[in-house]
Design a protein around this nucleic acid. Sequence first.
DNA 1: GAAATATGCAACTTGATGGTTGCAAATATA
DNA 2: TATATTTGCAACCATCAAGTTGCATATTTC
Lengths: 108, 108
Amino acid sequence: MKGDIFQAIADPTRRAILVLIAAQSMTPNALAEHFDTSRQAVSKHIKVLADCELLTQNKVGREIHYYFNPVKMKELDHWLTQFKKHWEDRFNQLDQLLINLNSNSDEN
Amino acid sequence: MKGDIFQAIADPTRRAILVLIAAQSMTPNALAEHFDTSRQAVSKHIKVLADCELLTQNKVGREIHYYFNPVKMKELDHWLTQFKKHWEDRFNQLDQLLINLNSNSDEN
DNA sequence: GAAATATGCAACTTGATGGTTGCAAATATA
DNA sequence: TATATTTGCAACCATCAAGTTGCATATTTC
């Protein structure tokens, strides 16, 4: 499961990190100041995000700037498309119709 | 974290369940036949998905038909929108420009 | 009514995960 | 060169999650 984006975004702290870094690239230290946990804990979250390429790093001197990499997030969006038809209104109504038909036939 | 959709879709088996049920509503037994694990394991996955309302149930006699509920998945899509500008080409190029500017200023 | 079927719940085990602490490596600064 | 800063890695611990097994409940069928 290592490098799995679904696993990566399952943690609320990691989602917060993504939101922060998507707004502006940051170093681990700067990032850790936004959270109650230790720097190392944040660092481990960064590692998970970097492992699945949601973050990319750019070393500048002794600092490492992490920035958001949209490619993998786009993959998640692509995964979602298979469900999109279910929440577009016209298809949603068709679904409901089919569910009702199923329920009725089950009762026979 | 109970009832969290990000947690729910983190598991690959649960994602497979969602795909199957989005295509056609099913009972737990029918669903379990698609997997190597036990019926109870699948049942627990169903419970997780139902707890966060990704699945809705419809009891028919002694069977329970689970069907896909798009509302929560739509919420996930909504969460994704905050990142979408990053992978639309024009904004992506702007991001790259800003990243480069940052790198240059860091070197001073 | 007894047996079979469909399902959920509880207990237990094992492995993964998130957190902490300590330390080492690389770079900047005095 | 000695010291401070930034960061990553490894070890350890506590909790959570996924799986199995066993059992109870509700419904259908014989």
